[in-house]
Design a binder for these strands. Structure first.
Lengths: 169, 169
DNA sequence: CACCGTCGTTCTGTTTACAGAACGTTCTGC
DNA sequence: GCAGAACGTTCTGTAAACAGAACGACGGTG
């Protein structure tokens, strides 16, 4: 099953990233070593309890393994954390990291689309390609995204939240 | 087990909210009716596959049932969707709904704490108790949260995203 | 009142996720 | 080279999650 493989791969990624062996994680989480092996290779369909035990032992929220997959562009790495629909618009909330050393350009979105960026760290140059805005830590930018726009980190990488708000079709 | 009960209650809430009967959801999701009954009462520890089938049939993301629990105040209903820590600060991202007809007051947070509100729908009156700001749909407000502050919906309810950013201790 | 549909729960047999053991492999150090 | 340890995979028996059937409890209709 496809979902199990996706989740398994993420679990393996998390474990490796922490430098834990399979046996060590099994010991810490109380999940059997064999179980863990088959989970990571996507050959099992894990139980909620098992997933919870593993993510807790890994110090990660459950959403890390069951949440949406990150999208990676030229410079922007984004994870959809929320999506809200009201009468007028659909709003998507992304956790973003803009990597320095590259500029990511985006084509115009549907008419009426706006974007917001809240910057946590670093300084970003974002917005309409013709008139980008500069935003530092703790800052906020808002621009119309129905024209070509760009994302760029000035100096070091940028961490923040991007909200894309587009009218309902 | 506690987690299973929590998830079960959320599933039942989602189903009821959509006006679906247990049998109907079972039919649409392909999950057995008995299975569903025991899941909702927290007597079973669901499989990832089962949870996915159910949330898909309910038209909700998986995170709705496994994500963090919402916090409810006098007027503000908030769900923590993300939490980011960098060298300077911790940033928490909340999906919020401010209900009209009440004012929620918050005491001063740690020095240097700032808050941002992005409004999706409705009009909000938020910020320092001494000088609140008015924000409409698509708008943004930012204020220092190290003084007493408030949240209020003007007219109808407000939907949006709240970001709380406080310095690392 | 009896009939029938729908509701949610409980029962029944099958499938499978689980813990732990056994296994082959790859590094160490003596 | 051969112990010993650690790694990840595969095997084995048990517990439990699953689909579907059977069940009792309501609520409407003739």
């Amino acid at each position: 099953m496809e979902l199990a493989q996706e989740v398994g791969a993420r679990l393996r990624g998390l474990r490796r990233h922490r430098g834990l062996s399979l046996s060590e994680l099994a010991r810490r989480s109380g999940v059997g070593k064999g179980t863990l092996s088959e989970l990571e290779t996507g050959r099992r369909n894990p139980t909620l309890e098992t997933l919870y035990a593993l993510t807790t032992a890994l110090g990660a929220p459950l959403s890390t393994v069951v949440g949406p997959a990150p999208v990676q562009g030229a410079a922007v790495h984004a994870v959809l954390t929320d999506r809200v629909q009201d009468a007028a618009a659909v709003s998507e909330v992304y956790r973003v990291r803009i990597q320095s050393g590259a500029v990511q350009r985006s084509a115009a979105h549907a008419a009426g689309t706006t974007e917001h960026l809240l910057v946590f760290s670093g300084t970003a140059r974002v917005g309409p390609a013709c008139a980008p805005l500069k935003v530092g830590p703790g800052g906020h930018a808002r621009w119309a995204a129905d024209v070509p726009h760009l994302y760029e980190a000035v100096g070091g990488d940028v961490e923040g939240v991007l909200v894309v708000r587009y009218p309902v079709a």
